[in-house]
């Protein structure tokens, strides 16, 4: 759980850095993003990393499911009164729920862009002799109300999913270090601060992309 979780944290950083290119406006920004998208779908090293990411997501999900089933079995009869908030954070008690929301998000997100990029109908054009797929246009029109009537709904869904990610990471990041036995008085504070920062900054930047594309339309 911890190792796959931390690997997925690394994936989030990489994915975020790539996606932040969507903030660069103009044809230059679009070209760079499309060249980057082509690189990400054709480079052999990236391919290996992407398979490792798919595997980590599936492993994280299956392991989480097994652990949740075992944990439910360990307490077949619930308490009449349980005061969980007196001793633990909401996120720590609802990792399975948050994870399920994220699974629905990942499936939707991959259908929205990954599927279109790999198997969908997508326009091609030439940049410096390279034939690229215009994924930039797909992303922009997906979150723009004039070209997608569900744009507002999708932006809302993406932002709420990132809120779920924030809570999931807020517990998950620090928890992974504890599971790996890396909890120590000397550097606990650093792990806590980095974890809290990571869980706020990463989802916030991710959520800002659909929001920016959506709001840009009205400016």
């Amino acid at each position: 759980m911890a190792l796959s979780g931390l690997f997925l944290c690394l994936f989030l950083v990489g994915h975020l850095l790539g996606n932040l290119q969507l903030f660069v406006s103009g044809q230059q920004g679009a070209d760079n993003f499309n060249l980057y998208a082509k690189f990400m779908t054709t480079n052999p090293i990236v391919k290996v990393l992407s398979y490792l990411t798919y595997f980590s997501i599936i492993f994280h999900m299956v392991d989480g499911l097994i652990l949740t089933i075992q944990n439910r079995r360990a307490r077949p009869k619930k308490y009449v009164i349980e005061k969980g908030k007196a001793n633990s954070s909401w996120a720590s008690r609802n990792m399975a729920l948050l994870g399920t929301i994220l699974l629905v998000f990942i499936a939707t997100h991959m259908q929205n862009f990954w599927y279109v990029m790999h198997f969908g109908e997508i326009s091609h054009y030439e940049i410096k002799g390279q034939n690229v797929k215009d994924l930039h246009h797909v992303v922009m029109s997906f979150f723009t109300p004039t070209s997608n009537s569900y744009a507002a709904f999708m932006v809302g869904f993406y932002v709420l999913s990132m809120l779920a990610l924030a809570y999931h990471l807020h517990h998950g990041f620090v928890s992974a270090f504890q599971s790996l036995g890396l909890n120590h008085i000397k550097y606990n504070k650093i792990i806590e601060i980095v974890g809290a920062g990571f869980s706020v900054v990463v989802p916030l930047l991710f959520a800002s992309i659909p929001l920016y594309v959506f709001i840009k339309h009205y400016l």
Binding site: L67, N71, S88, M95, H171, V174
Partner: peptide, 14 residues
């Protein structure tokens, strides 16, 4: 048949 630790930290508090 005890469950798995998910690091909620409730045990330490109680």
């Amino acid at each position: 048949g005890f469950g798995n630790c998910t690091n909620t930290g409730a045990c330490e508090v109680e």
